[in-house]
Design a protein around this nucleic acid. Structure first.
Lengths: 141, 141
DNA sequence: GCAATAATCTCGCTGAGCGAGATAATGCCA
DNA sequence: TGGCATTATCTCGCTCAGCGAGATTATTGC
C-alpha cells in the first residue's frame, strides 16, 4: 500500500514539473505533451504527422492544428510536406526544442541515474522488474 | 536510463487512467485532481476548504469556486460553514464519491499490491527505498 | 477525367480558468 | 463599543484551448 502512494506521489510531482516547464516557456500542458510525443517519435525514427500526434494526445483535428500552430509559432516545430504522399504534413522538431527539453529534464534524469547507481546489480534488476510489472498492470487496466 | 523511461511510461498511463475516469463520470481532469486532494484530506483528517484546495490545484479563487460548484452540482462534495470561524467553508466528500473512486482505482491498487506480493521482504524494502529516493529527487527538482 | 477517399485546415461555439473587485466574518486597538 | 485592517470566499467579464461540422487539397481506382 505504501508503494501505491509513493507511485502516485511521484506521478503528481512529475506532472507538476511538466506544468512548471510549460509555464516557464509560454507553453500549455498539452503543448508539452505534444513535444514529448514528437521527441519520442524523433528518437525512434517514426515519422510524425498532425494525424498521429492528434491521436496520441486525444485531440480532434481542429485542436491538433491549434497545437501545431502554437509550437510552430514558437519555433519548436516545423511543418514539411511529405514528398511521397503530398496529402501528408510531416512534423519536424527543431534543435532548440530538443535543447530546451534536455536543459529542463536533464538534471532530473541524471539524478535518477545517480539514485540507481547506489543500488547493486541484483537490486537494480529487482527495481526494473517491479517497474516493468507495474507498467504492465497500469497499461492493462 | 531504462528505469527513467519506465517511470515516465507509468506516469503517462496513470494520467490516461485519470482522464478515462473523468470522461466516464462527466468530470474534467481538474475535477478528478480536486477529488483526489479532498479524499487525501479526508483520509488524513485534515480539514479542507476552497482556499487549501485552490492552493493545491494551483487555481485562483474564481477557478476554485467553479471546481467546487461543479463537484457540488454532481453531488460529490458538500459545502459546510465552519461553526468556529464562520468566514470559512469546509468541503466534505460525499459517500458516493468515495465509492466511485474505489470502484475505479481499486482494481489497479489491488493489482499493484499483488505485484508487490511476488517479491520477498528484502526486495520489497529495496523497491520502497528506490521509490522513496526517486520521490525525494523529483520533489527537490 | 471523375467520383471516392484520405489528410489537414477553417469557422463558430462552449466552457475552464484568470484578473479585478465585491461581500462577509473576524481580530485588534483606541 | 465602534471603526479599520485582515482573511476567506464569491461574482463578473474576459481570454483562449478544444470541440463539431464542414471546407480544402492531394491521391487512388475505375
Amino acid at each position: 500500500m505504501r508503494v501505491v502512494h509513493l507511485l502516485r506521489a511521484i506521478t503528481v510531482e512529475l506532472d507538476r514539473m511538466g506544468e512548471r516547464f510549460a509555464a516557464g516557456h509560454a507553453l500549455h500542458p498539452t503543448d508539452v505533451r505534444a513535444l514529448i510525443c514528437l521527441l519520442d517519435a524523433d528518437r525512434t525514427g517514426t515519422p510524425a504527422t498532425p494525424g498521429t500526434l492528434g491521436a496520441q494526445l486525444g485531440l480532434n483535428s481542429a485542436g491538433t492544428t491549434a497545437v501545431v500552430d502554437r509550437l510552430e509559432r514558437l519555433g519548436h516545430v516545423r511543418r514539411e510536406r511529405d514528398t511521397r504522399d503530398r496529402r501528408r504534413v510531416l512534423l519536424k522538431v527543431e534543435e532548440n526544442a530538443i535543447a530546451l527539453g534536455w536543459g529542463f529534464f536533464g538534471p532530473l534524469i541524471r539524478e535518477i541515474v545517480t539514485v540507481m547507481d547506489r543500488f547493486d546489480a541484483a537490486e537494480q534488476a529487482t527495481i526494473e522488474r517491479f517497474l516493468g510489472d507495474v507498467h504492465e498492470a497500469v497499461t492493462r487496466s
